[in-house]
Amino acid sequence: MHLNVIVPFLLIWIHASHGTSELTCPSQSEVGSTADIMCVAPDATDKHGYSTPTKEVAALCQTKLSTCQPLGDYSAAVINETCSVLTIPSVKLSDAGDWRCTVSPSPMLTCHMVVYKTPSCTIISNEVNQAITVTLTGFFCSGRVQFYVAALCELFNSTVNIITDGIFNCTPVRRVSAETNLMFTCDNVNRNLDCKKVNNTPSTNPPDQTTASSTVTPGNQERIIHNPIGIVLPVIICIIVIILVITFVVVYKKRPDLFRGKTQTDASYAVVEKGDHVPL
């Protein structure tokens, strides 16, 4: 018989022969997923009572009547007189911790569940200084969380209390390839995250002089505004021209004779008309 079949069979036989109770729950569950918690008693009992890590009642099951009364956002069902199941339809951050099942007269049973949330991520690399920047959006782990870029560098190794964002920088010992992915670890949960890759290496080609001269950047615009020669000189010339025009108009109105030709006459001279003969 295969080993994977023998081991579960032996565990069930040990629990049944020694009359032990057991509460099982997923060792880790992702936020928004479904999780089942199973309470098993060695003998037929009347009730199974479930409570959350915050010590609130989640469900009460009457095994002999095959009925359960779930509370809150949970559902529950009786499998048989010794077994019942509590279902969490959508795991929340508050579901992390120790779950409890009361099976009288046995002691309270407990199981621990780790809750995590994997983030979306972007890896920005710069080949000039061999540095990378990793942006993480929306990560959580009820245990200890760790992020590292393959085997290149560790980005974060700590605990968080809420869904968290972060921007992390590191200088890896070797070049980041297009296949490099981000590793996420939450207690015994390991995930390989496929991040968006962005190459932020600046171009080494010289700028186009035509394009550069026709494009006004904020710095160039400021220098143009503060150039006094290009603006003041045309204004001064316009003012001088206006003053000259006004002066000419005023003088013309007051002394028009200055601008007209004069005829000099003398009485000692006779006016000779054309065709007259002057006697000698």
Score class of each variant (00 low, 15 high):
N4Y: 07
E154D: 13
A267R: 10
V251K: 04
C101F: 02
Y116P: 03
V114S: 02
R255M: 05
L71W: 00
P207H: 07
V145K: 00
L182Q: 06
V78N: 03
C61M: 12
E273M: 09
A212F: 11
R100G: 09
C195S: 12
T210N: 06
T118E: 13
I167D: 11
G275L: 11
E81K: 14
V216M: 12
V198E: 12
Q146K: 13
S21W: 01
T247S: 13
G32K: 10
S120P: 04
L136V: 07
I163Y: 05
I132G: 05
A41L: 06
A77T: 04
R260S: 15
P279Y: 04
N4P: 02
K262M: 10
K117G: 01
K196F: 13
G138A: 09
W99G: 01
H48C: 02
T171W: 07
T87D: 05
I162A: 08
V78Q: 04
T54L: 13
T118G: 07
L86K: 08
V134A: 03
V250N: 09
T204W: 06
M108F: 05
F168E: 06
M1D: 07
V189I: 09
F156Q: 00
P279G: 03
H2P: 00
P70Y: 09
G219F: 06
I224E: 13
I37D: 01
V57D: 01
S17L: 10
T265Q: 11
C195H: 09
C83Y: 03
T215F: 04
V176R: 02
S158Q: 12
V271K: 01
I132C: 10
T87E: 00
S214E: 14
F139Y: 15
T135N: 13
H15A: 14
V57S: 05
F140V: 05
P107Q: 01
S51M: 10
S90K: 03
A151N: 15
M108C: 05
V85W: 01
I225M: 13
N190A: 10
P42C: 07
L11E: 15
I162G: 08
T67G: 05
I124S: 15
I123A: 08
L60E: 01
P202W: 10
L193N: 07
P172M: 08
D187K: 11
P234R: 02
L65N: 01
H226C: 06
T247G: 02
S75M: 08
R144I: 10
A178F: 07
G261I: 13
P206W: 05
P207A: 13
G97D: 13
I239W: 08
I240K: 06
V78S: 02
A76Y: 00
H18V: 11
K254S: 08
N227A: 14
N126E: 09
P119Q: 08
I162T: 14
K253Y: 13
A41T: 04
C111K: 03
S84C: 09
S142F: 03
L23E: 01
M1L: 15
I231E: 06
V250W: 12
P228C: 10
E154F: 06
R223V: 14
M1A: 15
V272S: 08
A267F: 08
T215E: 07
S213E: 15
T263F: 15
M38K: 04
S104V: 14
C25H: 03
Y252I: 07
Y74N: 00
G143N: 10
G49F: 07
M1T: 15
R175S: 14
L182S: 06
C186I: 01
N192H: 09
C111H: 02
V103D: 01
F139C: 09
T180W: 10
S214F: 11
